[in-house]
Design a binder for these strands. Structure first.
Lengths: 225, 225
DNA sequence: GCCATTACGCTACGACTCGTAGCGAAACCA
DNA sequence: TGGTTTCGCTACGAGTCGTAGCGTAATGGC
């Protein structure tokens, strides 16, 4: 996942795996305390208890290091079966919001994305290690909903791929924008309203989805899990 | 809009308005050529034909300067009346996508947002000069659609404000994510599909116009997991 | 055991950027 | 004309960058 392994090494002293873990943990710690702009590789090396040169031997620079450090945060995402499409969406969106609410994710991820606009290799790294890895959630959620009869099956694989990409952009984009740009928490109320919008659309106007299967609606709600 | 004006100056040499414009233009130029990370204030000053100290007298630092330089790009956004809510949305989303596709917006805006996660004043500056300023588009679009009978009127102002915020997060977030994270163009096909999803929701099975697929990808997904 | 190979810790280095201070000159107002 | 503020310029210490060089540590092959 992280640093590259230019060639399968045959002999010689192996790289310390503990060093890798320590460096990535130190990077997240530095992101929390200092943020992206004030994070220096020398500081990370000191925190991790390794030499600065060791860092440069494994990562090309700050960008790649931070991407790898942040990517590990997203591996926690799961899609528990909550019984309905709406509940499934709400559950995973809340998880995503919790991750994006962490300071190390906020500062690190956005800055890395900003840098990736001028660095194709970095953008690919982000996509491979963070973004595309989570599309499995959309795929599984759709498959479940189709089995339940909540969504119509999609026979055309190309069209289906486009839809998955679209849903992913909408969901991830909305949560990111809410959390980072608007600067307000993606809490349960917001997630509920968002899910209602995603399922029913603007014309359904937040008040109650066309089907009576799920939680959604402006009313004060309680049990949803 | 941009630099502060600490106190209404009474006498003395006035600040050069041309310098302000030249500095902001030079900042955008530097963003295009160098990107955020390699942009230095000394370089911007040279491009603008002013002294570096002049720059520091007007802006607190790189963050504030870039926010002001990028903010001007968003003033072009308009909401022409295209006759229907769907057409209005598609039109304004395409405009937004065109702005976000510019390199100076990509690199500058994302980096500024990343920095704003650790700087409340900066986040407020971004909201005031960029984000909130565009909410007028959502407000006007909704009002139009309600006059046309496409959307139900919303009597409760608090609920209405929440809805506007939600829509804004969804629209802006989706376009940003598509453009910057997924790294693919928010072209007409995508905008059409997105608008259909926004209006009708997932359950409406957003089947729009028939289109030949061109997008890369074509993941081997077949509703399975 | 010995050697080739690779990773590691440490130090030092030139190059660069940062943000500020200080100066004299320029532009405006009363 | 005097008072006030801005501007251009130079110079500066502080900090970071990324790399080179060296001796040492850990592994596999013979």
């Amino acid at each position: 996942m992280q640093s590259r392994t230019p060639v399968p090494r045959a002999s010689g002293r192996p790289r310390s795996a503990e060093a890798d873990a320590a460096i990535l943990a130190a990077t997240r710690e530095a992101l929390v305390e200092l943020g992206w702009s004030k994070l220096t590789l020398g500081d990370v090396a000191t925190r991790a208890g390794v030499a600065k040169t060791t860092l440069y031997r494994r990562w090309a620079g700050k960008n790649e290091l931070v991407v790898d450090a942040v990517a590990e945060l997203f591996d926690e995402l799961r899609l528990p079966d909550r019984g309905s499409l709406a509940a499934d969406i709400e559950g995973v969106v809340l998880q995503l919001a919790a991750i994006l609410d962490r300071p190390e994710a906020k500062s690190g991820l956005m800055a890395a994305i900003a840098e990736s606009t001028r660095d194709d290799a970095l953008r690919e790294r982000i996509r491979d290690s963070i973004v595309d890895r989570q599309k499995r959630l959309v795929l599984e959620g759709r498959a479940r909903a189709q089995r339940r009869g909540e969504l119509a099956p999609e026979p055309d694989p190309a069209e289906s791929a486009r839809t998955v990409d679209l849903i992913f952009d909408v969901v991830a984009g909305a949560v990111v924008h809410r959390t980072l740009v608007s600067g307000r928490p993606a809490d349960e109320d917001w997630v509920r309203a968002f899910t209602a919008l995603l399922l029913g659309g603007l014309r359904a106007d937040g008040e109650g989805p066309p089907q009576d299967d799920g939680p959604a609606g402006g009313a004060p709600l309680t049990a949803s899990s």
